[in-house]
Design a protein around this nucleic acid. Structure first.
Length: 191
DNA sequence: TATGAGATCAACT
DNA sequence: GTTGATCTCATAC
């Protein structure tokens, strides 16, 4: 079965198209990773997006070309991984929130310190730690090593709902997930 | 099970 | 000086 790589042109579209299509795709960083089961879209019209107030030193990558990684420090402790999408007036990106671990389990467990498999990548901070994401990955293209993105081979059932952990524009339903997955950072309401 | 504190950086007021 | 796209551990119910 051909494993189609996703190249950076995939991201040259609206976040709202890209985000749900990423569910079910496989993300590997240095050969370690798994299937994407949860993402959130951050659009430039969205007060919760880092790009909302214009470019800064931190979010500069979001204002660059699509198909690159935007990595930022969250709450001073965690790293969070985003995929930059097309600018529609201003910058936008997809936050990768959870993976189903498939490759390099031992390595991920070591990095995370003997964690339950279900919690290895369930949440943006955990995911970044398990994949070894740091500032060094900020601005790297997603279609070149150490990144490897593989297109999904079938269309999964997508759930959508409210985003998590934010206070601004929390009512926007721009969180997407793989329906029924046990690797989500939080369950979606049944719908 | 549920709430609360702490860790600690960059942007914002 | 405060707050946030978070997580973990501790203590309380």
């Amino acid at each position: 079965m051909p494993l189609a790589r996703i190249d950076r042109r995939f991201f040259a579209r609206s976040v709202h198209e890209v985000a749900p299509e990423l569910i079910g795709a496989t993300l590997l960083v240095g050969g370690v990773g798994g299937r994407i089961v949860e993402v959130e879209a951050y659009h430039h019209t969205d007060p919760a997006a880092h790009s909302f107030r214009g470019p800064t030193e931190r979010n500069a990558v979001m204002f660059g070309p699509p198909g690159h990684a935007y990595v930022y420090r969250s709450y001073g402790i965690h790293w969070c991984l985003n995929f930059v999408c097309e600018r529609e007036g201003s910058a936008s990106a997809v936050l990768i929130r959870a993976l189903e671990p498939l490759e390099g389990l031992a390595k991920m467990r070591r990095r995370r310190g003997l964690s339950d498999e279900r919690l290895l990548c369930a949440g943006p901070g955990r995911l970044a730690e398990a994949l070894g994401i740091t500032r060094a990955h900020n601005g790297l293209p997603l279609d070149r090593p150490p990144f490897k993105l593989i297109a999904r081979t079938e269309t999964p059932k997508i759930a959508s709902g409210l985003r998590i952990g934010i206070t601004k524009a929390a009512e926007l339903p721009w969180r997407y997930g793989l329906k029924g997955s046990r690797f989500l950072s939080k369950p979606f309401k049944a719908s």
